[in-house]
């Protein structure tokens, strides 16, 4: 079966971002960009399913600026077979991304659609679920284990109290949680090979999607600063401060 994996180009997880002084957004000039960590886990899972013989072809999709092809190439170096870049300069919302992915799914007919549970830039945690709704497909969100059996997939999900296992009819959407797997590193020969793999470039219009959204970001501000704390020298001093100064115990 075919697997489709969606990856997003985001600011690297270790970068501490700064809000622009005009409050229009965060400053991303000259900031290191990477593949979203949850998307990397999704790619890894698809590759493992291919290694097991469950999946025959992996298509990786990214929606975003031209530079997002770097992230598609990274996914190819990890084992994806071909790529689709849907190029758009606009800051695109989760619903629009889900609509574009729906168009791609309808063309490619994958049985498994893998996404990260959330992107670490907008922290929305929406696209997989929205795609599930648009396709009328089942969703296994926050997956920590995936088992394909015939025309079904069993997904163990990380929920607030512990774990929950659901069984979905294929085609189904899976969004990955951190503990699903440990993504591999791309080996140099594979990085070289990835350059030769096919990559199609499309536009949102090819899927009949307009990128206008009714959700506007009015402004972006830095979070409130915490007032500077103090170093205490002993346990006695700590207990005294907590009791008499902070009054929390």
């Amino acid at each position: 079966m075919k697997a489709l994996v969606a990856v997003k180009r985001v600011v690297d997880a270790n970068v501490k971002v700064r809000v622009k002084s005009d409050n229009s957004g965060v400053d991303l000039t000259n900031v290191k960009m990477s593949i979203n960590p949850f998307c990397e886990i999704a790619v890894e899972e698809a590759v493992r399913l291919k290694e097991k013989g469950t999946v025959s072809e992996i298509i990786v999709v990214s929606i975003g600026p031209k530079e997002a092809q770097e992230q598609i190439r990274s996914a190819m170096a990890l084992g994806a077979d071909r790529g689709i870049l849907v190029e758009t300069a606009d800051d695109i919302g989760a619903l629009e991304v889900a609509k574009i992915l729906k168009g791609i799914v309808e063309q490619e007919q994958p049985q498994l659609i893998l996404l990260g549970k959330q992107a670490i830039d907008d922290d929305s945690n929406q696209v997989g679920q929205m795609l599930g709704a648009l396709l009328g497909a089942g969703q296994g969100t926050f997956a920590s284990e995936v088992k394909v059996e015939g025309d079904k997939v069993q997904v163990t999900r990380e929920i607030d109290g512990g774990l929950q296992t659901v069984e979905l009819t294929l085609p189904a959407i899976i969004t990955t949680d951190l503990r699903l797997n440990e993504p591999r590193y791309a080996a140099l020969p594979n990085i070289m090979k990835a350059r030769k793999k096919p990559l199609d470039t499309k536009s949102p219009a090819d899927y009949g999607v307009t990128t206008t959204t009714k959700l506007k970001t009015v402004k972006v501000e830095p979070p409130a600063e915490r007032k500077a704390g103090v170093q205490v020298k002993s346990v006695d001093e700590l207990v005294e401060k907590l009791k008499n100064e902070a009054k929390v115990i």
Partner: peptide, 21 residues
Amino acid sequence: TTTGKNILPRVAALLDVSMIT
């Protein structure tokens, strides 16, 4: 919660509206 985040985006897409997390 994991329940709310699992369900609501699906609701939003069924209604064809954007959502706020």
